[in-house]
Every structure is written in C-alpha cells, then in structure tokens.
Design a protein around this nucleic acid. Structure first.
Length: 814
DNA sequence: GCGAGCAGCGTACCT
DNA sequence: ACAGGTACGCTGCTCGCG
C-alpha cells in the first residue's frame, strides 16, 4: 500500500551534512511552505574492472585540510559511453566534499565527479523545479507526479531597494548609514528614521538605523515572500545591509527555516543566496536578456532598463543629491522616489520572473541558479539531466590545455552574401526557421552518433573533397554524411538531437495551445514564457557544441552544423536565381529576393520546402515595398554586410546594423539618420532628406544642439588601467575618475567631443562635465558619415550636403 | 614636415 | 565564460613626396 504523500511545488534545493551524513534539502511550497531533508550519498563513476571493487573501497582521499576520507560503499552500474555500454563502478562517498579528494586517489578513469550535488539529486529523481511533486520527510520519498500538468506555483514576490547616505559620492559602507528602505509586494511602503515626510501614509518612521534594519527583517518575515527581488542587490543592497548590521552589532535575517545568506560564485557572476527563499537579482538577468537580444537598452541602470522595458519614464532624484535632501530634512520627495525604485523593481520582476521560472523548469535547474546562469550553463544542465535519464555517462569538463586548443581553433561559421548597394522596391525575405537546431535534429548530429574514422587518421577538418567515397555520391545507408565528410549514424538518436527534438516539438505544441488561449491571461503569459524558454534553450545548443568549456564539445559536430547550414542557404540562393529572382542579400539563414509577384515567392518557398528534411522549413519573414543597402565605408562600390533598412507593408521600418541602432553614436547623428531613412523609404523624398541634413548641420554650426544629444556612449570592458591604447572613452573615464565619479570595468561612459585639445581623445569630456562641443567633429565625423552612406545611393556627394551645391545624376530615382 | 594608407585595438552589432 | 562574421572609429606607425 502506498504511503500517503503530500503534494507541493518544488522551489529550491540545497544540501547539508549532519553527523557524517549528507542530506539534500528541498524547499517545498504546499498548503504550508516547508523544508524537507532527504538522506542521499554523493557518488561518482569509476571505469575499472569489477574485480577491483574492494580495492576501490580502500581508496584514501586527502582533503585540502589534510583530512583523510574514504568511500562508504560501491555498486556495479551499467552506463553508456559513446556508442558502447560498459559496466562501471559507482563509488559512494560520505559528503560531497569528499568526492574530489577520493577521485584524486583513484588510478582509473573517473566520471561525474563534479556534478553539483543537489543537481545530482534532481537528475536522479527526475524532478522539475517549480512543478508539483509528492513528498514525505526522508528516505528519498520524493517523486515527480507523472501525468500532472506542470504548473507554476504562484510564487509570492517582494521587491526592495535601499538608499544610503553618500556625502562623498559613492557611499562607504563602514561609515555611511542606510537611510531608507523601500519594499513592494502584497504591501508596499518605505521605512526610514527621520521625520519629515508629511501626509505620506506609506512611510513608517523608526527610531534609528538599527531599528529600521530590524523592521525590514520583520516586514520580510511577515510578508514571507518566496522570491525576494532587488536590482543589483547581490553586489550592492545585500552586502551593504550586512555590513551595516555588523557595524551596528546586530544580525540581519531575511531567510526562512534558519537559512543563511551566502555569497555564491557562478562562473563570473556573483550571487547571494538567501536560504529558504529565492533571491532574484534582476541585474544579471537583465544582462542575460540583453545578451540574447530580448531587450535592447543602452545602459543597464534600473532607470534605463525600466524605461526601455516598461515604457514609463520616471523623474528621479539624482544619486549625488540624496544626502543633501536627507540633510535638508525635507525627505518627502526622497521617500516617494525610493518607493518608485521598489515599484519599478517589482514591475520588472513581473516582466522577467515568468520567463526565468520557465527557463528553470525547462532546463531542470533551480530558479535561483537559473537567474545566475548563462545559456551555456542551462543547456549543459539540461543535457546532464537527460544523459542521466538515458543511462549515459556525463562527459567531464575539459582541462585548461584542451580549452586553449579549442579556443585557438575556431570553427568556420555562416555564409554572408555581399549585397549590391542601392535602393530597391519589392523585397521578399525568407528564412529558415531555427536553422541550426533543425539541422542538428535532421542529421542526428551528436558526439555520440559521430562515426570515428576507421581509415583516415586524425580528425576530419573538412578540407578537400568529400572523403570515403566518390565525390557527390551519397554514403552507404545508415549514415548522414556532412559536407565536411563527418558521418553520423542513423541507427539511434543521439542525446543532443533527442533533447532538441523534444524542445522543438514541445514548442510547436505550446504554440498551438496559445492560439486557443485568451491573451494577457495568466495561462497565456505562462505558456508564452514557456515557449520563449524553449526557444532560448533550443537556440543555444549549437553554440554550446562549439563552446570551448563545454562537456559536449565536438569540433566535427559543430563544423558539420555550420557546413550543412551553408550548403542549404547556398542551394536556396542558387535555386532562387535559377527561378529568375535576383538575390539581394543573405545572412546565415535568410534570403532577400526581388520579386514581381508575391505568388512567385510563395511558390518558390513551397518548392524548396518539399526538398527539405521534415524538421527544416523555409518561412516567409515578410514582404517589403522598399529597402536600402549601402556601400561600405572604405570599400568603394562594395556593399556593406549586416546593414540594411526595410520598409514594411505596415509602414514600420526594420533597421539592422546602421549607426542609428548603435549606442556608440551620438543621438544627433542617429536621429538624423533615422529621419533621412524615413524620408526616403516612406515618402520617397530625397529633397526632404537633404533639407533635414542641411538644417541639422546649420544647428550644429550655430551651437544650438544640446550636449545630451551629442553624447557618445561606450562601455569599458576592461579596467581603465589595463588598456593598451588611448581612446576617447578612456580619456573621458580618466577625467571622471579625477572628478570623483565612478568609471570602472563595465561602466558605460558617455562623452562629448569638446573644443579643448588636439586629438579626439583629448577633446572627449564626460557628459557630466562637458561645457561645449566641437561642431566640426559632429558635422564631419558623426552626422555626415551617418547620412552620406544613404545619400550616396541617391547620387549626392558630401559637399552638396554641407554647402548646398548641385546634385549629380540619378536625380529621378523614384 | 605632412598626408595617405594601413595595422591593431576595441566596441557593438547580425544571425 | 554559447558560436562566428562583420563594420568601423581612433591611434600610431610607415612610407613616399616635396
């Protein structure tokens, strides 16, 4: 008879060691939120003869502390490795920290010795974070519920933000107090300890800093959120609060079930764990979403991101004025602004938490870890989960030498067709839906299905004619042969194609379901987010295969993916040209065609699709009445790749690569370029374009343009002391540092090119300190280069823009 | 001495 | 710290020329 089991959502996992035994801890949200302990021994695999079983038990590992540790038991287990199944020895240890020590003492190949332990448990139990599980207190009595739809628990969320006293610019945490804390969850408010906020019922005034910190802990405990959200809270708010608490001789407790605050490092990202809750720092999440292109902000400050994502601009107090406002005693405004920060943080969390939660569920990684992960780590985690399920050994991480070797031998990537510069009418864009994922699935590309060369030594590097048979002749049945010559078995689906196929199918299913749902409902938001999570994961597999630190790195596989990609796109181009289309441009998975009839394009697309493997599909991206391609700066008549503008049938302009989408160009240049493109694409009016340019040139000459519109923003990707060369942004950064402003690795420097100085670097002044601008620079190095690329296609030269001379031929283009 | 041309560094973008 | 392909600004150097 089955024992009674309780149902709950699994929201976080960790482990603890007590009395020499290891327990996995799970935070489970049911009727009540509980923490449960499951005794579970860490282990790893040893590839050694079964007869050596007893010897292995005698292995003596030495920990860094000098302590001698030994395994607790050994089992025989069958595991697949490559195409073979092998008997392995599964060696159990008392504690996770014993694993590397014991592994080091074993003279046989070892596997799976560095899998984070609570993840190991998730893989072995087949759990999905944030899904429903049955549980009991111990004895591994936790099971996923099969057949139950995976739903998110309604995670309760509270955001917070602190204000600090900062008379010296940046606050000094040992001395400068926290003066205010705002929070926003079921309840929202501000706590502080100075009277001065009148008629603001959301403000609670305490006796002093210490009492305020205590009160904050109380509020968190009363509200008891599952998720505590901050913006850059791992690097600023939480460490600051902690230091202040220490300085005041008190203890800050924000966790649950006695869970402590702990700094964690995931790769290069710093996180702070709050035991029992999920601490969600939006900053790394926003960086991640920026990296994969979901959001596009110039700066990564709370204000900039909120404005970009929420489309609402808030008037805010300047950071450097906070202390003055505090000292003035009139803190009403400060309270308001502080609350706005907590509200914005909360609004951003509502926007991003659903996606993070779905990424967590899809990648089988606890939510907290997910918020700190790169897409490579998500893919790796998911592959480890499925490898475990399929009984496959998880490959080890590469060593430093292997990493170096991989980095130094990059893999040939995509094909990009050189466009012919010009202005065109009736452009159709077709693209392959999920090109690389569909190639991996279609051709079963996986390190495990790769057939090693029996005849030729070394790795196939793809050079030369197709090996292993007459050129052009298909290989024997049962294998796919890539354009590089690599061969992949058809007999069993590889791990990566298997997982990818699952993700792709699941996403198709969700897309169908989405159509039946009402938009903006909870269900819609969740399914949409899940579909998005599946897409993000699926698109990351190819990169992961060619990633130097990948456990599943395979040069022949990654090369085959791109080689097949090039083959398909080039065949599509050739076929289109054969049908009489002009192919204007192509990048990786897209073709831009000039068409006379839309039906021709659709017919062509359908014909291509008939010839493709089932999982591959060419889609219509859109029809565009007009489009512009420009020539390269120094390249004479040669077209620039990755730069174009298309006017959609809905009147919207799709712009790629132009200066106006780049943050390292001034607004004045970008706005002018945008207006010129609009005038030409929408109205077909080159006269208007000319007028726009002459006006702005005149304004610049007259000194009428405000400095903010002249700022050029560039991120410092290194410590300012580590640059080999001088550059305007570096000079501006140095001027900032001299003035007591922050300019360090990661800072986005905004500078204006001023009048004083010889080189541009010398003239660069940080926007904060800029007083004037060099009109010639902005005319000749910003506005004109940006617009002349386009005007050149209309037959204008630079001189005529500046001085109103005559235009050349091509006058009546339209 | 000076401008043109180029290499190298660095950033940001496209798929 | 997921991949490669690409444009282009600025600096600092070489080179040819006068």
């Amino acid at each position: 008879m089955a024992i009674s089991r309780k149902r709950a959502f699994f929201i976080d996992a960790g482990y603890t060691v007590r009395n020499g035994k290891t327990y996995v801890t799970l935070v489970l949200k049911g009727k009540k939120t509980v923490k449960r302990y499951y005794q579970y021994d860490p282990y790893f695999y040893v590839e050694a003869p079964v007869s050596r079983k007893d010897d292995l038990l005698q292995a003596r590992g030495v920990k860094k502390s000098g302590e001698i540790v030994m395994p607790v038991r050994v089992e025989v287990a069958e595991r697949k490795i490559g195409l073979e199944t092998k008997k392995m020895l599964k060696l159990f240890c008392r504690e996770p920290s014993h694993v590397p020590a014991i592994k080091a003492a074993i003279p046989f190949p070892c596997y799976e010795y560095n899998i984070p332990f609570s993840r190991r448990f998730i893989f072995d139990m087949g759990l999905t974070p944030l899904s429903v599980v049955h549980y009991e207190r111990e004895k591994r009595q936790i099971k996923r519920i099969s057949g139950v739809t995976q739903e998110d628990p309604r995670l309760s969320v509270m955001s917070f933000d602190i204000e600090t006293y900062n008379p010296q610019g940046a606050p000094r945490e040992e001395k400068d107090p926290v003066i205010m804390i705002s929070y926003c969850g079921k309840k929202k408010g501000v706590i502080t300890y100075k009277k001065g906020a009148q008629g603001q019922d959301f403000v609670e005034t305490l006796k002093g800093e210490e009492r305020m910190l205590e009160r904050f802990c109380e509020i968190v405990s009363e509200e008891d959120p599952d998720v505590l959200v901050g913006y850059n809270s791992a690097n600023f708010d939480l460490p600051y609060l902690n230091t202040r608490a220490n300085a005041l001789g008190m203890r800050l407790y924000l966790g649950r079930f006695g869970g402590q605050m702990k700094e964690v490092k995931k790769g290069l990202i710093n996180g702070v764990q709050i035991g029992g809750r999920v601490h969600f720092d939006l900053y790394p999440a926003v960086k991640f979403f920026g990296f994969i292109g979901i959001i596009k902000t110039q700066k990564f400050t709370l204000d900039a991101v909120a404005e970009d994502v929420l489309k609402q601009k808030k008037v805010k107090i300047k950071k450097e004025e906070i202390w003055q406002t505090w000292d003035s005693g009139d803190i009403g405004k400060l309270c308001e602004y502080s609350l706005v920060d907590a509200e914005l943080t909360s609004a951003l969390a509502s926007r991003f938490l659903p996606l993070e939660a779905e990424l967590s569920g899809v990648a089988k990684m606890p939510l907290f870890d997910t918020t700190l992960s790169t897409s490579g780590q998500l893919v790796e985690n998911l592959l480890m989960f499925h490898a475990t399920e399929r009984g496959e050994i998880i490959p080890s991480r590469p060593g430093g030498d292997a990493i170096m070797e991989r980095v130094n031998a990059p893999i040939q990537g995509a094909f990009v067709k050189l466009p012919e510069p010009g202005i065109y009418e009736n452009v159709a864009v077709l693209d392959f839906r999920g090109l690389y994922p569909s190639i991996i699935v279609s051709y079963n590309i996986d390190p495990g299905t790769l057939i090693e060369d029996e005849m030729r030594g070394g790795r196939g590097d793809g050079a030369g004619a197709a090996p292993g048979g007459a050129p052009g002749k298909p290989e024997s049945e049962g294998r796919f042969v890539s354009p590089t010559g690599a061969r992949f078995s058809k007999s069993a689906t590889g791990l990566i194609p298997f997982v990818l196929n699952y993700l792709i199918d699941k996403r198709m299913e969700l897309k169908k379901r989405l159509k039946t749902l009402e938009k903006a409902g909870d269900e819609y938001v969740r399914i949409e987010a899940r579909s998005h999570a599946l897409k993000i994961l699926a698109n990351s597999f190819y990169g992961y295969m060619g990633y130097a630190r990948s456990r599943w790195y395979s040069r022949p596989c990654a090369e085959s993916v791109t080689a097949w990609g090039r083959k398909h796109i080039m065949e599509t181009i050739a076929s289109a040209e054969g049908k009489g289309f002009s192919v204007l441009y192509s990048d990786t998975d897209s073709v831009f065609l000039l068409y006379k009839s839309k039906q021709d394009v659709l017919d062509f697309m359908n014909e291509i699709n008939k010839s493709l493997p089932e999982k591959m599909e060419l889609e219509l991206e859109g029809f565009y009445p007009r489009g512009v391609f420009v020539s390269k700066k120094g390249g004479g008549e040669r077209g620039a790749k990755k730069k174009y503008a298309l006017l959609g049938e809905d009147g919207r302009i799709k712009i790629r690569g132009f200066e106006l989408v780049r943050r390292d160009w001034s607004s004045v240049a970008k706005d002018t370029q945008r207006k010129v493109l609009e005038a030409i694409l929408k109205e077909g009016s080159k006269e208007k374009a000319v007028k726009i340019i002459r006006e702005i040139v005149a304004d610049l000459q007259d000194g009428k343009v405000p400095l903010e519109r002249l700022a050029i923003s560039t991120q410092l990707n290194k410590d300012p002391t580590r640059y080999e060369i001088v550059s305007p942004e570096l000079y501006a950064a140095k001027k900032m540092i001299a003035a007591g402003l922050v300019a360090e690795k990661g800072t986005v420097i905004s500078y204006v090119v001023g009048k004083a100085g010889k080189s541009i670097s010398e003239k660069a002044m940080p926007l904060e300190l800029a007083k004037d601008y060099d009109a010639d620079y902005y005319i000749n190095n910003q506005v004109l280069p940006a617009v002349m690329k386009i005007m050149k296609e209309l037959g204008y030269d630079e001189y005529s823009m500046k001085f109103g001379g005559k235009q050349k031929s091509l006058d009546n283009f339209f």
